[in-house]
Amino acid sequence: MKTQFSFDFRAIQLRITDGSTNPHMIYIKEHLVRDHTADKPSGRTLFIVNVPPYVDEQSITNAFKEAGSIQSVHFSEKPNTINSNTEKFTLGSCKSSFRVCYLVFKKVASLQNALKLKELQPMNLDKHIFLGINKFIHEYNEKVIKPMELKNRIEVFMKRCDEKIKKEIEKEKQLEQEDDEGWITVTKRSKIQSFARTEKVENKIMSKEKKSKKKKELTNFYTFQIRESKMKHIVSLRQKFDEDKKKIAQIKQSRRFKPF
C-alpha cells in the first residue's frame, strides 16, 4: 500500500551526551495535515519520528535549542492521535517505547531554522534525565503518598464526579420533556418502565421466545418422530465413531502408536 511513499524527511542524529558514539537517527519534517488543531498549529510545528524511549520534553528542547525558543512539546505513540481528555484518577506510568513528537516553536522562523540544522545539541548536558537506577528510585519514592494527600485527591475527584452525575441527571430529565414533535425519550430514571438495553437482556428475551416455541411442539409422539429419534441416536453414534477415527488419524500422524 505504502510502496509509493515519498521520503521527505530529514535524517539527523540525536545524541544524548557528547560522548555518544552510536546515536539514534531521528527524522524531521514540517507538520502538514489538512486539519490543524490548536495545539499543533500549522507553520510552527515540527514533526519528529523515531524518538528514543528515554527522551523527555526537556531533552528535546535542549536538542533544538539553537533553532529558537519552543512553545510546547507533544509526544505520542502513533502519529495523528487525539489526546483524550477524560480525567483519570489512577495515573498509569507511560510505556517506554519509540515515539513520535510534535515540537511547536514560538516563531515560524524557528521551524525553518530547525529544518536546516546540521547538528543537534546533546540532550543531557544539564543531566536532568533520570536514567537507570536513579529513575527507578525516583519513581518508587514518588508513588508513596501521604494519607492526607491521598484523602484530598479522593475528595476533589469525588466532588467533580458527583457534579458530573448531577449534570447528567438533569440532562436526562430534560430529555423526558415532550419535544417539538411530541416525542418523549424514555430514560433509566423515567416513570415509564423499560428494560435495560444490554446484550444480556436481549439474549434472555430471545431464548425465552425460542423455549416457548419449543414447548408448543410435540416430540416423540408420532411414530415417525420415534423413528427419527432412533435414527438420531445411530447418527450420533456414527458421528462419534467418525470423530474418533479422525482423532486416531491425528495421533497416528504424530506416530504415537509405536509403543517402544
Binding site: 511513499f5 535524517a11 539514534h24 519520528v49 523515531n50 502513533k78 519509540f98
Partner: peptide, 12 residues
C-alpha cells in the same frame, strides 16, 4: 522500508 508508524530505530 520507511513508514511513519514503524520507523523505530531505523537508520538509512
Amino acid at each position: 522500508e520507511f513508514q511513519i508508524t514503524n520507523a523505530h530505530a531505523l537508520v538509512p
